[in-house]
Design a protein around this nucleic acid. Sequence first.
DNA 1: GTCTATATGACGATAGAC
DNA 2: GTCTATCGTCATATAGAC
Lengths: 195, 195
Amino acid sequence: MTTYDAYHHGDLRNALEHAALALVEEKGAENFSLSEAARRAGVSPSAPYKHFAERDALLAAIAEKGHRFHYGMLRTALAGVESPAEIMRITNELFLTFAVEQHAFYQASYRSHLDAARYPQLMVAYQRVLDITDAAAAALRTDPEIAAGLALASNALRYGFAATFLFDRNKPTGESLDTARRQVGRATLALVDGY
Amino acid sequence: MTTYDAYHHGDLRNALEHAALALVEEKGAENFSLSEAARRAGVSPSAPYKHFAERDALLAAIAEKGHRFHYGMLRTALAGVESPAEIMRITNELFLTFAVEQHAFYQASYRSHLDAARYPQLMVAYQRVLDITDAAAAALRTDPEIAAGLALASNALRYGFAATFLFDRNKPTGESLDTARRQVGRATLALVDGY
DNA sequence: GTCTATATGACGATAGAC
DNA sequence: GTCTATCGTCATATAGAC
């Protein structure tokens, strides 16, 4: 009863998400497998299917959490910031921090190629992140087409920066991260000025 | 002899690259498998190992060709262009065209996570592409640190644009591609101006 | 240069017992 | 809610025949 019940604690869903997060951190979202997550959580390969309909569903759950965590970071970092240009700069600099410090979340949210149509809640969570840049761009440029282009460019810039920073170079040092953060901030302001 | 010799034509390496290219176009670089490439080339799963030491070696061969093809496109598009800012704009706009029209090459070159250290020739070919933006940035800004930051930002911008264009939206129409191309060009010029 | 045969090892997913 | 057992599938890679 005792040990057995300890296993059957009803918290497997949480344990699986935890294990999956560590797994994704180590091996990247592409190499994630549901079986290994189960193995690390100490349960059989079929146990997860009571909580997640399929492999991708666990990944999607993590990705959604990642977006929400990212959004929370943004809210904290942007508290009291009024200037739209500053909002865009800080948002883009913070993305590098997120990608490095919350690397498992970053992997799940940005590098697992999940079918967005199958996991609508994922897009909802992501949209809240995108709204920050969209709103700032709209505050800066009245023409909606221009504002949309600026927001898109800003998103593309930070996404590309993170990808090249994390995968072209190997292993981010603290110093190179600071440099990259300054570079992306500067580039964002240039974009805001000149787009 | 006849049919047999047709199979044993000595051109398997080429046939495999061809099959792999089609495979990557359809399913993406992540889902590429050497076995399936062999299947499509009409040979046994072990036949490729006479020409490629391992799975990734075939992928790397295609990625290298992709970089060279991309470089050729750039040379053509930039013939006679003198202005460094224009070089950067055209380079970035062309990247979207490359990603869409040569999608298999794009996948192999930019979305197969190959170990760069294991395939040094891959980096050599890629560096030729990067040199174009590096040189233009250096012509624009004398401070080497600033020039490097500008080049990095420009590369990140086009990379991010292509990634979001191809995967956020589904299936590029001709019109949306034109729009995206204008947007990335405009963003690049803004970057050049303000960085 | 390509073949067959094979070793080895994942993985996703389902059925049915407890 | 978790288990065992299992099916089916696919992959990388090697050894040795032709």
